[in-house]
């Protein structure tokens, strides 16, 4: 089963849920691979007892124009849907940070003046621990092309029984890329108007990509809260509630697992694990 842990709002507890669910599943006997797809700020490893290997570069193909052959016909600039190439009467300019590596330019060049170079987007590292395996991507500072690195993180996950993907915040391309091909999306939120607003956006996203989802309420207080009301109206299952407690916050701040620091969180994650197992069995 492949599960993406997402949210609209940042800082709602995606990583807390991803890590604690992953360890709960591993301790129940499943082989688990945790993929940190929040490549702009990966932090799941802080909670994991995993020895990561030396990172390797992840790159994408980009055009390299041979100025000696190019006759500035403009075919490459014309086909580029991303406006990464500007053709002037006596020179052709390439803006690599706009390139999406679609290959159109080198396929269409009548002079065969364009060859494939590479551009490094970031790096990838994997490791195996006593309880689970993990991979994380780390985007190069200033880079704006994110999905290829997320694809590389997902590809590295291998044949584990459960692959849990910690998504970036928001609802843009990197989140869509993380969700692509998963079986279920867990949306983590908090009982605040901001949390509910961004949950609505995230629910719309999961529905538009045709994926089933369930909600985890973090920093939950008394029930029912405004998230429960929203979920009831939308017909969304609330699969777990993580209580708003000092012990949980302290454990996270110290890089410890919340399931080890707090029995209520352990119970919530076990309940979440079984709810997901039931869905997997029913599928």
């Amino acid at each position: 089963m492949r599960i993406a842990v997402a949210s609209g709002k940042g800082g709602t507890g995606k990583t807390t849920v991803a890590v604690n669910l992953a360890l709960t599943a591993a301790r129940a006997g499943l082989s688990v691979h945790l993929g940190d797809c929040d490549v702009e700020e990966p932090n799941a490893r802080l909670f994991l007892d995993v020895a990561f290997e030396a990172p390797r570069d992840v790159s994408v193909p980009v055009p390299v124009i041979d100025a000696a052959i190019c006759n500035h016909c403009g075919a490459c600039a014309k086909i580029c849907a991303f406006n990464a190439i500007a053709c002037l009467p006596d020179r052709t300019l390439v803006f690599l940070d706009l390139c999406h590596s679609c290959a159109g330019c080198w396929l269409v060049c009548p002079q065969a003046a364009i060859t494939q170079g590479t551009r490094v987007l970031g790096e990838l590292t994997s490791g195996t621990g006593r309880e689970l395996a993990a991979t994380q991507g780390l985007l190069r500072v200033g880079e704006t092309v994110v999905p290829p690195l997320i694809r590389a993180v997902k590809d590295a996950a291998g044949p584990a029984a459960w692959v849990i993907l910690d998504a970036p915040p928001g609802t843009s391309c990197p989140v869509v890329e993380t969700m692509k091909g998963v079986d279920f999306v867990l949306l983590v939120t908090e009982p605040t108007p901001f949390g509910r607003h961004d949950l609505e956006l995230a629910v719309r996203l999961t529905r538009s990509v045709g994926l089933p989802c369930g909600v985890v309420i973090n920093r939950a207080g008394g029930t029912p809260d405004l998230i429960d009301a929203f979920c009831a109206r939308e017909g969304l299952p609330v699969l777990a509630r993580i209580p708003f407690k000092r012990t949980v916050a302290a454990a996270c701040a110290e890089g410890r697992l919340a399931i080890e620091a707090d029995q209520d969180v352990a119970a919530a994650m076990t309940g979440l694990f079984h709810a997901l197992r039931d869905r997997e069995a029913a599928a």
Partner: peptide, 12 residues
């Protein structure tokens, strides 16, 4: 994206 690149090409 790249509106400036495209516009500059037209202007040029």
């Amino acid at each position: 994206q790249g509106a400036g690149v495209q516009a500059a090409q037209i202007v040029a």
